[in-house]
Amino acid sequence: MSHTIEDKQNLLARIRRIRGQVDGIERALESEAGCAQVMHLIAGVRGAVAGLMAEVVEDHVRTHLVDDEKYPGALDTAATEQLLAVVRTYLK
């Protein structure tokens, strides 16, 4: 998974932000915050994890499935963009 190594610092930064959000949920529960506040915090984490997944999937597709240098003309670029748009939408 060379693409994850290349983007290692960005991915780690996202994970650290997600960890901070999860810590926020824990603090909210410990302080007996209201249900609405806790649900908003959980929704934020869910969105952050989905965004991380979308980024890794997109990099995977671009690196392993449509690498023009390795496989010139193997797949339709427009089809790739359509697939990635669907994945991004699904993971929101």
Rank of each mutant, 00 (worst) to 15 (best):
R14H: 08
K92H: 15
L75F: 08
R17Y: 06
A48V: 04
Q21L: 01
A79K: 14
E81M: 11
H3W: 12
R16Y: 06
A13Y: 06
D7G: 01
L52V: 06
L29E: 07
H64D: 14
V87C: 10
L83C: 09
G44T: 00
Y90W: 12
E69N: 12
V22F: 03
L91Y: 10
Q37P: 00
V66P: 04
A33F: 00
T89L: 12
E55P: 03
V61A: 07
D59H: 12
E81N: 12
E26A: 11
E26L: 09
C35F: 08
T77E: 14
P72I: 07
L91W: 06
V86E: 12
Q82I: 03
V87K: 09
D7S: 06
V57T: 14
G51Q: 05
D68V: 07
S31H: 04
A33T: 06
D59P: 00
A50C: 09
R88Q: 14
L52P: 05
T77I: 07
V66N: 01
G34Y: 01
I25F: 05
I15H: 07
D67N: 15
L41A: 15
A78V: 11
Q21S: 11
L75K: 05
I25D: 02
M53K: 02
E32V: 02
A74L: 13
T63P: 01
D59Y: 04
M39E: 14
A33C: 03
L52W: 05
A50E: 10
L12Q: 11
G20I: 08
Q21H: 14
V45Q: 05
K8A: 07
V22L: 12
G20R: 10
T63C: 08
G20W: 04
V22T: 08
T4E: 10
Q21W: 02
M39N: 13
R27L: 11
V45P: 01
Q21C: 05
D67C: 09
D76P: 03
A50P: 05
I18W: 03
K92G: 15
